[in-house]
Design a protein around this nucleic acid. Structure first.
Lengths: 206, 206, 206, 206
DNA sequence: GATGAATGAGTATTCATTCAT
DNA sequence: AATGAATGAATACTCATTCAT
């Protein structure tokens, strides 16, 4: 038996692939038809497995959605991780602007499943319980970045880094929810406008 | 009052009161238990009527929610109606700041039922179809205000009024959705921070 | 509105009839296919109503079965109620024999649904909780009768009335469960044999 | 041991051990959680094998339970086997009393799995079909004993041995099912009372 | 207009059984 | 022989909607 074979023991290869497919299918279906209509039947179909298979991998729909949220969130975390270290490396408008641009596009993917958290208090509770820190990671990273730029006098010193970080992300979130957000062109222009206003608001010297 | 007189009205007094109670009950129930758990049974109970009565006044649950959204939205419309005429009457930070502050508090009330629109694509569609204009009224009013202030050179001329209006409202919406938005103190401080950044971004001269 | 009409208010006539039909259907279906196979679907069909109707009358299957057990038990209670007063009125073999004969036939009806209590600990618990006394009524009545006959020196004084009552009923229960209990003839002969042995055992003077 | 030698046996040692473990696990699990909750998953876990393994040894759950019942029944058969030969060797109260006492304790072990037969008509059918004789062995043995004691004039001659045997076993069965049968003390006293009444009923001369 | 009993399609979940490895 | 991932039919229960009163 090879090392690879040993790794596959317990969680066999096929099982892992199915699990991944289920998570992907959940994000896809929730995005397509909304959380309320994301039935286990629809998810199973999208994943190309039988309905019962869901329950070999997740104790219930609840936990499947949890896993889907965390999965979608992981990309977001990656993007913002290096942000603080970029402070001072280029104009705030460029560094923060690019980060927000990227986050905005990821947010769109994350949004549908994230919405379910707001609609379903129970889900929200167990997310903060089980994963806790990860979902707040973007907030922290951006706050860190703001703090460092403030130290370099490139962002207004009176702004509270934590609060301001929340404002930036809230705006992206709000925009992602706009009715016309499926019209890409228009959506991107709105994001640009938001970044313009927000960054200007951060660096304004008055 | 004769029977003939009552008939002539088309919508009798009792019927109107029941209708109003149903709308109020819907907003209340959705706010309390979330849209997913806002069953027709719960709404009927909260309104003090039988379940079947709902269908005397609304063709289905769908239209009941629609009416509830419009009702909740009406207050919002009132607040922003006079905003354009206030352009130039006081510093942007004051006029727009106050408007946004008020909108932020109203948004919180509106939020639960509004969320249902996002969760239920079908509802969203028929809202824009049937009511269309009213829900966009705040966007227009703020865009008007921005345009007038631009004419007075008190807001950056390069900003697109419509897009910028969307950005402002999106931020309020995003903040209303933040997990901790039930902690009033913290929530209000976040709103203040947002208004600070946004207004600064609007008026910044660079 | 008549008095009858007033009585029907709240629990309307149609509703009460449906409720009764559901209870009857439950006893019938359980008797036919066994508790494990007595699905809500089968019960609803037997009652001639839709499956969802069950839940207008009972919070869940659990409570429907509970009601069915109590209903079936009510007849048993009636039969034994007058037993104690018959002590001394005729030979033990006649009075007790007749009572046991009647109980045996009723037991057969009650048996299937009663079995569910043994199989489903949860059901058993809530039965003793909610109805408690009624199901023990037969045991008490027979114990009373035995005690009175002991006072008349017509039953062995060394026997414990409570324990002995349990033994008599256990035998009927055990017989009702015999594999061949659907062969009436044979079953009745077994009951006769049991009554013969048991009564002889009670009155034996040794 | 060569591979050829192992093959020649048809049923290999490992297979037999697994089979035995499955039967034991079935009796154990049914006793612990009741037949309704004795899933193949639970049984496989208790036996320390994979679920699929069950189907190497039994065509279905049905046949596994059948085997388990027969296994549990085997002990009962052993106990009663020598009973007929003890006729006349000691007072009926002693010989039969002891046998019934022993049977009562074994019955308690057998009961849970036996109950499943009553709950599942299909199982019951195939048991009488496939195993037939063995389960009736105790009835026959006791009937034999009664007949021999009748020949010795120590049991009432008018009693039908077969029917009476059924009555005796039914009583034990009924007592085993009493709600309080987990309270050992009380349960044993009830058994004693039953034996007292039954034996007295058998030997009574009237 | 109002009622509330009845409906039935739909939901998440379970579990005996199959099958590729 | 053994595994355990996958299956899919079946289950109890929900809920928007209809309809007789």
């Amino acid at each position: 038996m090879t090392a690879a074979g040993a790794d596959a023991r317990g969680k066999q290869a096929r099982g892992l692939r199915t699990r991944a497919r289920l998570i992907a299918a959940t994000n896809q279906v929730v995005a397509e038809v909304g959380f309320a209509n994301a039935t286990t039947k629809a998810i199973a179909e999208a994943a190309g497995v039988a309905e019962g298979t869901i329950y070999r991998h997740f104790t219930d729909k609840h936990h499947l959605c949890l896993a889907a949220v965390l999965e979608a969130n992981a990309d977001l975390v990656d993007v913002v991780a290096q942000l603080p270290d970029r402070a001072g490396s280029a104009p705030v408008a460029d560094v923060l602007g690019n980060a927000l641009r990227t986050l905005a596009s990821l947010r769109s993917q994350l949004l549908p499943i994230e919405l379910s958290l707001l609609t379903q208090p129970a889900l929200r509770a167990s997310l903060t319980a089980s994963a806790g820190d990860d979902t707040m990671e973007p907030v922290r990273a951006i706050a860190d970045y703001i703090e460092r730029e403030q130290a370099l006098s490139r962002i207004r010193p009176t702004l509270d880094p934590g609060q301001t970080s929340l404002v930036l992300l809230s705006t992206l979130f709000g925009i992602a929810m706009l009715p016309g957000s499926d019209d890409r062109r228009h959506h991107e222009r709105t994001v640009e406008e938001a970044i313009d206003v927000l960054v200007a608001g951060l660096v304004a010297d008055r």
